[in-house]
Computed example of a mutant assay.
Amino acid sequence: MSDLAKLKNVGKAALADFAVLGVTSTAQLAACEADDLYVKLCALTGQRHDPCVHDVFAATIHEARTGEALDWWVFTPSRKERMKAGAFCVGN
Rank of each mutant, 00 (worst) to 15 (best):
K6D: 14
A30E: 11
L41S: 02
C89N: 11
L44H: 01
Y38T: 03
H54C: 05
L15W: 01
V23A: 09
K6Y: 01
D3Q: 04
A30I: 04
V74G: 00
C32R: 15
E81R: 13
L29W: 12
K80M: 11
T24Q: 15
V74R: 06
V20N: 02
F75S: 10
A34Y: 02
A19Q: 14
D50L: 09
V53E: 02
E33P: 00
H49M: 08
D50V: 02
L4A: 11
G67W: 11
A19L: 09
C42V: 04
E63M: 02
V90F: 08
A31V: 01
A87M: 12
D50M: 06
V10L: 05
P77L: 06
G91T: 06
V39S: 12
E63N: 06
K6P: 00
F75D: 09
M1L: 14
R48Y: 09
A14R: 07
R48G: 08
A13K: 14
L70C: 03
W72E: 03
F88G: 08
A58G: 00
A85R: 12
A58D: 05
N92S: 10
V39D: 13
R82N: 07
R82P: 09
Q28E: 15
A87K: 15
C89R: 14
A14P: 01
F57D: 09
A59R: 05
E81Q: 14
A13G: 08
G67E: 11
V56S: 04
L37H: 07
